[in-house]
Lab assay of single mutants.
Amino acid sequence: SRHTFEINGERWTVEGVSEELKEILRAAERASNDEAERLLRLALKLI
């Protein structure tokens, strides 16, 4: 499935992501810059 999210003013669209990964991306959208970066690094390990 496709998911579009915005982090630090940048929009991203990813396809074929699991519900778990979507949850991480949604958390990154709400997080501070440092926390968002940490969550994105974690998410990339899952891809």
Rank of each mutant, 00 (worst) to 15 (best):
K45T: 12
I47E: 01
R26M: 13
R26Q: 11
V17R: 02
A43L: 10
R41E: 07
A31C: 05
H3P: 04
R26P: 00
R38N: 07
G9A: 03
E20Y: 13
S1W: 10
A31Y: 03
E19D: 12
S18V: 04
S1T: 15
R11G: 04
E10D: 06
S32H: 10
T4V: 14
W12R: 00
R26V: 09
N33K: 15
A28C: 04
S32G: 12
R30S: 11
R11F: 15
E23T: 12
A27G: 05
F5S: 01
R38M: 11
N33E: 14
T4K: 03
L25M: 07
A31R: 02
R11M: 15
S32V: 09
E37D: 11
E6H: 09
A31W: 03
L44K: 05
T13Y: 10
R38P: 02
E35H: 05
T13W: 13
F5T: 01
T13G: 02
R30M: 14
E6D: 08
V14M: 08
W12M: 04
E19V: 07
S18Q: 04
R30V: 12
S18P: 07
L40Y: 10
R2T: 14
L46V: 07
V14C: 14
E19I: 07
E10P: 00
S1Y: 08
E10V: 15
V17D: 06
L21S: 03
G16D: 12
L21G: 02
K45Y: 14
A36V: 06
R30I: 10
I47K: 02
K22P: 00
E37N: 12
E23M: 13
L21M: 09
V14H: 02
H3N: 08
E10L: 12
R26S: 12
R2Y: 14
T4G: 03
G9T: 02
A43W: 05
S18G: 08
A36Q: 10
I24G: 00
L39P: 00
A36S: 07
R2E: 09
K45E: 11
G16C: 12
R38S: 07
G16P: 05
A27S: 09
L42R: 05
T4E: 09
I24L: 13
L46W: 09
R11V: 15
L44E: 03
N33C: 12
A28Y: 08
D34M: 11
G9Y: 03
E15S: 11
A28D: 00
H3E: 15
G16A: 11
S1H: 14
R2P: 09
E6Y: 15
R11T: 15
S18R: 04
S1D: 14
R11S: 13
G16M: 08
S1R: 11
S18I: 04
V17Q: 04
V17L: 10
A27N: 09
V14G: 02
G9S: 02
R41P: 00
E29Q: 08
G16T: 09
S18T: 14
E10Y: 09
A27H: 08
E23D: 13
W12H: 04
R2H: 11
R41V: 08
W12E: 00
L21A: 13
R11C: 15
S1E: 14
L39K: 01
A43H: 02
L44Q: 04
K22M: 15
N8S: 04
T13F: 09
D34H: 12
L25T: 00
L46F: 08
E35M: 06
A43I: 11
A36D: 01
E23L: 13
E35V: 08
L39C: 04
E15Y: 15
E15T: 12
L42F: 10
W12I: 13
E37Y: 13
G9N: 03
V14R: 01
R38W: 10
G16N: 15
K45S: 14
A31P: 01
R30H: 10
E29M: 08
E6P: 02
I7F: 05
D34Q: 13
E20H: 09
E15V: 14
H3A: 09
N33G: 15
E19Q: 10
A28N: 01
A36F: 06
